[in-house]
Design a protein around this nucleic acid. Sequence first.
DNA 1: TCATTTCATTAGCTAAGCTAATAATAATGG
DNA 2: CCATTATTATTAGCTTAGCTAATGAAATGA
Lengths: 145, 145
Amino acid sequence: MNNRQVADRLHSAAVHLLRHVRTVDSKSGLTASRLSALSVIVFGGPISISELAEAEQVRPPTISRLVKEMEWEGLVSRQRDAQDRRVTRIRATSKGRRLLFEGRERRVAKLAERVARLSPEERERVAEAAATLERFSLPADHPLS
Amino acid sequence: MNNRQVADRLHSAAVHLLRHVRTVDSKSGLTASRLSALSVIVFGGPISISELAEAEQVRPPTISRLVKEMEWEGLVSRQRDAQDRRVTRIRATSKGRRLLFEGRERRVAKLAERVARLSPEERERVAEAAATLERFSLPADHPLS
DNA sequence: TCATTTCATTAGCTAAGCTAATAATAATGG
DNA sequence: CCATTATTATTAGCTTAGCTAATGAAATGA
């Protein structure tokens, strides 16, 4: 299998994998985008809008609105940076942290059902590849990398 | 690594992988959803709206609109089923086939850049896992499975 | 036959991406 | 030191893609 074929399979698998896990989101109140951003905020510490946008590979206005909504819902809070007053630092509230873990758990549980169906050999290979993938699909300077 | 951890990594990798490849879509005129649906139409032969919706794991109205737009753009054509006149069969036009291959190529090329950066061992493991994943992230009755 | 079921579409809502324009602040050069 | 430029974030307004509910049209079946 050449690079292109590997890439093609990865692409197709990723698309369908996410469609599959998305089915549990209605219960959690956290969509894929929010889960992902919240995860960066929780684990990547207080972070600015532009840093968050870059980490999430989207444009600042997209994150700006996401944060506004999450703030409204009490999942995150903002604080003006004392050194540079243009910047606001975003951090997760305890409610945000709790919802992240719950929402993640739901998605991951859904996926884990399928992981559990694999043969031990397949599971092993997928586990190894997942580690590699996790590394290579993040931008080099992603806060979680 | 337990099932949950494997699943967690897969989830995270899939999210960022798709964000990454999405950056090339503006040039192709084919978004992720269209690429995916068109792919099912091209390889899964003439197919009804409901079959397509199930294959894509979305609701019929979502596919209905997608097909309407792709038809408008000359990528697919419809034909009433002679046996059951409620059903329309969708098939790709030659333009649709061409655009699928081009659009896919762009996304996949973007991904392949990263695949190419892996060590031979990593690449091998990812390739094997991709095959497994492709199978397991599709519903059992997906036309491409 | 007529009541029910099935397939597809339409209408209308939400979420999440984008660009362009604007406001506020910081940094810089004359 | 002030005026200009650059940076950070937001707002406005557009698009795409998901959803449910309601509707029309065709098939099925009691």
